[in-house]
Design a protein around this nucleic acid. Structure first.
Length: 470
RNA sequence: GGCGACGUAGCCAAGUGGUAAGGCAGAGGUCUGCAAAACCUUUAUGCGGCGGUUCAAAUCCGCCCGUCGCCUCCA
């Protein structure tokens, strides 16, 4: 079964064929750094991480994620705070990378910033001016003439003619010839304060869409494999990127466009006014582990709306525990050989792969993981899985975890129990044998304070480091 | 107004013609000094509603109801 991806361009699932047989070039729309990214933003970034990880299991991946560090919002916020734009965005860039790290999102090869690529953008705009595809408005801003690009609207399935009836378009606000035209370069005005670049296009700053064209093509070439973002980017952002890039190069820009649906909260659009607005930090402050959030994202398909609830997140936390605990129990398996193991594992590998290959169907893939646990739990409890077999099962879980990212490899490493803890455990065991339960309970409590949880099982006490179950 | 998506158990969520995966929560049980954890069993004659096509429909078609998104800078 080959990898199949849903391509927004054609509104259907398509077999993925990279341009180069061994390498995939991937552009993922990144954050505008005017504030902390929220859990809705991170749904998209996590989808991109899953995509990256699965592609990386088959190809060498070159990924670019842009950082938009100049736009209306960043300028306005930095002015409000009285901090230079660069300093203001610098902080939020750092916060963004911290959040990526806590969610175990694998780093991209490039994180280009818009403000570092003004020259590249100017060059494209110059070229579009020369080709008479762009024009200068009365306000000195430069606009893209949508009528010069016949396929405009194709990605979003929008007819340009219909755009004009859009109620939100106020013609008065623009000095462009058609309401559907969009800005490539914004001439400086007072609102921009000291944010501007003196270029051959005049004093001003780039429009939003041009940065992605410039930076994607700089790092990935004129024609590359995959471009992703949230569904709201389909129009106008990605449509405009196509128009700019293809008019500039005369080549096809991107083969596969992938878009993640939005996350909603308690059935409603997340918004600050509804009080249902969460950043990743808000979630962690409530005591949830970042892995629970990660698992929560993975538990639905990226093209479905995901309804975020605290109850749902709690459920994700429990699911993560179950998987992690299973691994721990496997580690100490030392029973007889389980004859059906090869069959169970083959099925697990196959279903995991089929799920992922089917447009990154992570719910199917995680179901394969849980199903393998269901099949192996009884033999594991009955001590009919051998040490060697347990290793094979662990290999499957590590394989799946290359995608799921639940830190299962760390759990396996965290096996060393310090001497003093070992000593306390055996003291407690002898106390229990002497039926001195008061002392036993005291030691259990003391161990807990040292972040070790002790669980009595028929085959003796089991120790868990509290961090290891997070 | 235009374009589009979705509606499966208490919650989350797979399944696009062959008789409802998986997870969470709940209930019962095993184990246990207690606790915790774990394990086992169990939970939709039903897939928003009504019709239709078919030997067979959650899946295809029509209508209706409901929720949501996009339509110029929101992931």
């Amino acid at each position: 079964m080959p990898l199949v991806l849903y391509n927004t361009l054609n509104r259907q699932k398509e077999i993925f064929h990279p341009i180069s047989p061994s390498e995939v070039k991937l552009y993922t729309c990144g954050p505008t750094v005017y504030d902390f990214a929220h859990i809705g933003n991170f749904r998209t970034y996590l989808f991109e991480d899953i995509l990256r990880r699965w592609l990386a299991s088959k190809y060498n991946v070159i990924q670019v994620m842009n950082i938009t560090d100049v736009d209306d919002k960043t300028i306005r916020r930095s002015k409000e705070k009285g901090i230079p734009l660069h300093e203001y965005t610098h902080d939020y860039i750092n916060f963004f990378f911290e959040d990526l790290l806590s969610l175990k999102i694998e780093p991209a090869e490039y994180y280009p910033r818009a403000t570092d690529h003004i020259q590249e953008m100017v060059q494209i705009i110059q070229d579009l001016l020369e080709k008479k595809i762009a024009y200068q408005g009365e306000d000195k801003s430069i606009y893209y003439d949508v009528s010069k690009f016949p396929e405009y609207g194709k990605l979003a399935h929008i007819e340009v003619k219909e755009l004009k009836s859009g109620a939100r378009v106020s013609h008065d606000e623009y000095d462009k010839e058609e309401a559907s035209d969009f800005a490539l370069w914004k001439a400086w005005d007072k609102e921009d304060g000291n944010v501007f670049w003196e270029t051959s296009l005049g004093k001003g700053r780039p429009g939003w869409h041009i940065e992605c064209s410039a930076m994607s093509m700089k790092y990935l070439g004129h024609h590359f494999d995959i471009h992703t973002g949230g569904v709201d980017n389909i129009f106008p952002h990605h449509q405009n990127e196509i128009a700019q890039s293809e008019a500039h190069t005369g080549e096809k820009f991107v083969n596969y466009w992938l878009h993640a649906e939005h996350l909603i909260v308690e059935g409603k659009k997340m918004s600050k006014s509804l009080g249902n607005f969460y950043t990743v930090r808000d979630i962690l402050k409530k005591g949830f582990s970042p892995l629970a959030l990660r698992y929560f994202y993975v538990s639905s398909h990226y093209r479905s709306k995901l309804n975020f609830t605290l109850q749902g997140l709690q459920g994700a936390e429990s699911s993560v525990h179950r998987i992690r605990d299973f691994i721990l129990r496997l580690k100490s398996a030392h029973g007889a050989s389980y004859p059906e193991l090869p069959e169970v594992l083959n099925k697990a590998y196959q279903e995991f792969k089929e799920g992922m290959d089917d447009d990154l169907n992570t719910p199917r893939a995680t179901a394969a993981v849980h199903e393998s646990i269901n099949h192996l739990n009884t033999p594991l409890e009955e001590k009919s899985i051998s040490r060697e077999q347990a290793q094979e099962v662990i290999q499957f879980f590590l394989h799946a975890d290359k995608i799921l990212g639940l830190n299962l490899d760390e759990i396996l490493k965290e096996s060393h129990i310090p001497q003093e803890i070992q000593k306390l455990i055996s003291e407690r065991e002898s106390a229990r044998k002497n039926k001195d339960y008061r002392k036993a309970d005291e030691i259990r409590k003391a161990l807990q304070e040292k972040h070790f949880i002790i669980e009595d099982t028929p085959s003796g006490p089991r120790v868990k480091r509290i961090e290891s179950i997070s």
